[in-house]
């Protein structure tokens, strides 16, 4: 495998990790907005408590993606941000407000000060960000960004404000909701767990519906994407994604909770991997191939060598983090952070 493709693989893995971990935090905002019924407040609090220690770490995956993009694919980085100026700006604003609202609310409530409207800001931003990021990915895969003579040739709204991208954006939101609800089934018990189970089931049906709908929409609106669906690799990954999705329905239905998080994460990972399989060997369909936008040899070597060394520090640290904070969140915390 060439260095370029390896580096592109790092981007894809970064995206998958970001979706699997931070996606669940965004989903937390989705369910905060949609909390209803007698246990609405308890639902919100359980979500909040689960996110506290991990959201910042989860967020760093995004930084890793951005950094990999501009280190290994500087041309594509410039072009993507030029073509997707608006959705990426909106996603960024969403990220900022979400993080700040969470932090302010969290530490504020410990100190006894509740800042007004942080809950609403947190929810709104949590929906906006996966929506616009999904739209951006949809525009890239849909073959909507054209590059002529080294310059982005598409207009400001053209590549992303269209049916296929919008479906992709909705898929992004549904994924997040699905992940959070599935993860929360292992961190809660009793009626609260039932609430999250039902939400996870609903979300997985929505996600299944949206991904199915994406195919005819692609036929009408994103032909380059549709035309590539039939090749062996995309078919294989997509079938695996469907199988995993069905498995998650079964797992949730039978209440095999221990399996719910890995199966949900696997489903999401495979859906994103399918997106990658359709794209390959293009970075930005249809004008920029992975090898034509990659950085030079020395840069790729330095970058790729740094990854395993970094991983040597990171993986044990991450295990320690998730291990330290993996217990249930519906019981009173032993002790929260100091106030």
């Amino acid at each position: 495998m060439s260095l370029e493709v390896l580096a592109a693989g790092v981007v894809l893995i970064g995206l998958i990790a970001y979706a699997m971990f931070a996606g669940a935090d965004f989903g937390g905002g989705v369910w905060t907005a949609l909390a209803w019924g007698p246990r609405a407040r308890v639902q919100r609090e359980a979500i909040f408590r689960a996110m506290g220690p991990v959201w910042e770490t989860n967020h760093v995956w995004l930084i890793l993606i951005v950094v990999t993009l501009f280190t290994a694919f500087p041309r594509a980085f410039g072009d993507l941000f030029t073509a997707l100026f608006i959705p990426l700006s909106i996603a960024l604003i969403g990220i900022v407000f979400r993080g700040a609202a969470f932090a302010f609310r969290h530490y504020g409530s410990e100190g006894g000060a509740r800042l007004p409207a942080t809950g609403i800001v947190f929810s709104a931003a949590s929906i906006l960000t996966p929506l616009t990021m999904g739209m951006a990915l949809g525009a890239i895969a849909g073959g909507q960004i054209t590059i002529r003579g080294g310059q982005v040739a598409t207009e400001l709204y053209e590549p992303w404000l269209r049916p296929f991208s919008i479906v992709c954006g909705l898929i992004g939101v549904a994924m997040c909701g699905f992940l959070t609800a599935s993860y929360m089934t292992t961190r809660t018990g009793g009626a609260l767990r039932e609430d999250f189970r039902n939400r996870a089931l609903a979300a997985s049906l929505v996600l299944g519906g949206l991904t199915t709908a994406a195919i005819p929409v692609a036929y009408a609106d994103a032909r380059p994407f549709f035309d590539r669906l039939g090749s062996p690799a995309p078919i294989a990954v997509m079938s695996a994604a469907v199988a995993m999705g069905v498995a998650s329905l079964v797992v949730l239905w039978r209440r095999w909770y221990a399996l719910a998080p890995p199966v949900a994460a696997g489903t999401v990972a495979l859906v994103i991997a399918a997106w990658g399989a359709v794209q390959y060997p293009y970075f930005i369909l249809p004008d920029e191939r992975i090898d034509s936008v990659a950085a030079g040899h020395a840069t790729l070597v330095a970058f790729l060598v740094s990854l395993p060394i970094g991983a040597l520090i990171l993986i044990p640290s991450l295990v320690l983090l998730y291990y330290t904070f993996s217990e249930r969140t519906d019981r009173p915390a032993p002790e929260g952070p100091p106030s």
């Binding site: 950094v67 990999t68 280190t71 290994a72 500087p74 410039g78 970058f303 740094s306």
Partner: peptide, 15 residues
């Protein structure tokens, strides 16, 4: 576009 490949490396380490 010009400098990403040159100074991206410290940013990756920073990550």
């Amino acid at each position: 576009d010009f400098s990403g490949a040159i100074i991206g490396f410290p940013f990756a380490l920073e990550g």
